[in-house]
């Protein structure tokens, strides 16, 4: 017998549950404790995806004034430039919303572009001052997307990032978005890049998870249910996912870096939709109820989808 409905706890979408330091970062941002933030940021171990930390700091619009004050006092503060730039990108997307372009009003687009332009100019300065700063390049991959600066420009920005950070997960994930047909790319490029990330990354790194993200994107793009089912039924898709999972989240050296909940969620969702409940269950168990909006919002209401797929997978396994 399966467990009674509702006995399993609902999924936990709280970022701080996966990464407790997020709570501290949010408090520091709310208190505008710039010295503490800088000290924390500057002492992060090499190889940390600092775009994640900057993303947390840029969540709250209350921090914007403090950032502007800091920049007025220290115009060459790369961290402040990057957090403010990232904050403005966030604010711009909040105005634009994630809707299809045809459902976004002219005023929304105007404000969106104004925010992105201001962000881009702060970030140009940040990368000019420190071309090795990963979070600024990762943010510039977002501005390039929103400002429609072109495929080669996105690739150039990624290459600039990769000169110093050849396995930067956030940067790779953003370039992957650009390589998808919705932003002017091709599936060949998107899958090819994801595979390249998998093969070039160190064993047990997160990067190969992009193979799963590419398949989720491809699946979503197909629209019609029968085409989606047909897509996932292809043996090579399943084989690629198994390989990618083994080299990443199931690798003995996997250390759960920033972004792992999303990647493991992608694997769980894909295996579940394919009908490989054994694989899906293993990923759900690894997640231990942790969740992120992506990819579950692609499937429907994130929490409902998560519970449905998880319960099916765990039941099927038994």
């Amino acid at each position: 017998m399966s467990s009674a409905p509702g006995a399993d706890p609902g999924p936990d979408f709280e970022l701080a549950s996966a990464f407790p330091e997020v709570t501290w970062l949010r408090q520091a941002a709310a208190a505008a404790d710039w010295a503490a933030i800088r000290q924390y940021h500057d002492s992060l171990p090499p190889g940390t995806d600092r775009a994640f930390v900057v993303g947390v700091l840029a969540e709250d619009d209350g921090f914007e004034h403090a950032l502007r004050r800091q920049l007025a006092a220290v115009p060459h503060d790369v961290l402040a430039l990057t957090v403010l730039g990232t904050r403005l990108i966030e604010a711009g997307w909040e105005i634009r919303t994630g809707a299809r372009a045809k459902n976004v009003s002219r005023e929304q687009f105007k404000a969106f572009h104004e925010h992105l332009r201001e962000a881009e100019q702060l970030l140009i300065r940040a990368t000019a001052l420190d071309p090795s700063y990963d979070a600024a390049w990762a943010a510039r991959l977002n501005t390039a997307l929103g400002l429609s600066l072109g495929m080669n420009e996105s690739r150039r920005r990624y290459n600039r990032l990769a000169r110093y950070h050849p396995h930067h997960f956030t940067g790779q994930a953003r370039l992957l978005q650009k390589l998808c047909p919705k932003w002017g790319g091709t599936w060949e490029d998107a899958h090819g890049f994801a595979r390249e990330c998998l093969l070039t990354a160190p064993e047990g790194a997160l990067n190969g998870g992009l193979v799963a993200e590419a398949h989720i994107e491809h699946w979503l793009d197909l629209g019609a249910a029968d085409k989606r089912t047909e897509y996932l039924a292809q043996p090579h898709v399943h084989a690629e996912l198994v390989e990618a999972a083994q080299r990443t989240v199931f690798h003995p050296q996997f250390a759960r870096p920033y972004g792992w909940v999303t990647v493991q969620g992608c694997f769980a969702a894909l295996f579940s939709m394919i009908g490989d409940t054994t694989q899906a269950a293993a990923h759900f168990q690894a997640l231990g109820n942790l969740a992120s909006d992506y990819p579950w919002d692609y499937l429907g209401k994130p929490a409902e989808q998560y519970i449905q797929h998880r319960d099916t997978a765990l039941r099927g396994r038994r």
């Binding site: 140009i124 300065r125 001052l129 600066l149 072109g150 420009e153 150039r156």
Partner: peptide
């Protein structure tokens, strides 16, 4: 011809680096 966007981006960044004093 196909790389104009990246040449423009690179050009802007070279100018920015000098403006930043690098």
């Amino acid at each position: 011809p196909a790389k104009q966007d990246a040449v423009l981006g690179g050009f802007v960044d070279v100018l920015a680096a000098l403006q930043a004093g690098r």
